[in-house]
Design a protein around this nucleic acid. Structure first.
Length: 269
DNA sequence: ACCTAAACCTGGGCGC
DNA sequence: TGCGCCCAGGTTTAGG
């Protein structure tokens, strides 16, 4: 999924239905999806209620009462569904939290990369979150500019969660196109004007996607199973060999840092 | 410090 | 319809 807009959209939906719900039972069929171990996870959450849902980077954080937390990472193909237990089955479901109200939180994960993790207290939670850089939607322009003082390639740096949190492959591609910056450039080579353009482009693209309910390019779904809309408004992501909407040049595709990278040689310099 | 490739897995789309 | 190949919103680890 799931980059900041997708995870944040889901967080807001969860925040509407989950607080006050009591976990009655956990079922699963893939043990590695419950961390640190299925038994520890289940013992940690059973009988507790959910009081709040937070987000840090691409990680959802469920606050439990009277104490404890669990996190959910959707990785590439994770979906969360909120359903009455009588609802028809969903495909690819591997973990289900059953609530006393008769509702279920279903975790569908086709590729089995995603996971739930129980965290027993604040100290451990902080430990788990300590390596994340500032959230992209909160970082100041000045701090952003400082973070770019690096020889790393700009696109790889944007996607490095320890430098800046929340950006993934879609929004890195789209923001660089908006800011007219080639993804292969080293971060430190960006002029102050370019840094400002990039910072603004990132804010713009994140905000636009969040308003559209995120990008359901392949797997991402809302809590009720519906799709987001940003995939219909990609600037350059996925547009291999199409013509650039800004300058008409043919859009290139190459692997950069092991990730598919789309850019326009005509207007990204 | 930074880069690449591979690993973790499965499904969907495309060409033949 | 089927098969093979390529690709996939992420992260981690091994090796150069």
């Amino acid at each position: 999924m799931p980059e900041l807009p997708e995870v944040e959209y889901l967080r807001r939906e969860l925040e509407i239905v989950l607080p006050g719900e009591v976990i009655k039972k956990v079922s699963y069929d893939v043990g590695k999806m419950l961390r640190p171990q299925p038994k520890l996870f289940i013992d940690g959450v059973i009988g507790k209620s959910i009081s709040q849902i937070r987000r840090r980077a691409k990680l959802l954080i469920f606050v439990l009462a009277p104490q404890g937390f669990f996190t959910v990472h959707l990785r590439l193909s994770g979906r969360l569904f909120w359903r009455p237990s009588t609802a028809p089955a969903d495909k690819f479901v591997h973990v289900v939290l059953h609530f006393a109200s008769g509702y279920e939180l279903r975790f569908a994960e086709a590729r089995k990369f995603g996971y739930f993790e129980y965290i027993k207290n604040e100290i451990d939670l902080e430990k788990r979150l300590k390596d994340y850089g500032p959230e992209i939607d909160l970082v100041s322009w000045k701090n952003f500019s400082q973070i770019l003082e690096s020889r790393q390639r700009i696109k790889s740096l944007l996607m490095d969660q320890s430098k800046i949190a929340g950006i993934g492959n879609i929004y890195a591609n789209d923001a660089l196109w908006l800011a007219r910056i080639a993804p292969q450039r080293s971060a430190e080579s960006l002029s102050p004007k370019e840094r400002q353009r990039l910072w603004k482009a990132l804010q713009q693209v994140i905000e636009e996607s969040l308003k559209k309910g995120g990008a359901s390019d392949q797997w991402y779904r809302h809590l009720d199973g519906s799709k987001g809309n940003y995939q219909n408004f990609f600037k350059i992501y996925g547009q291999r060999d199409e013509s650039c909407p800004r300058c008409g040049e043919k859009i290139k595709y190459e692997s950069l840092g092991g990730r598919g990278t789309f850019w326009c040689p005509g207007c990204q310099n």
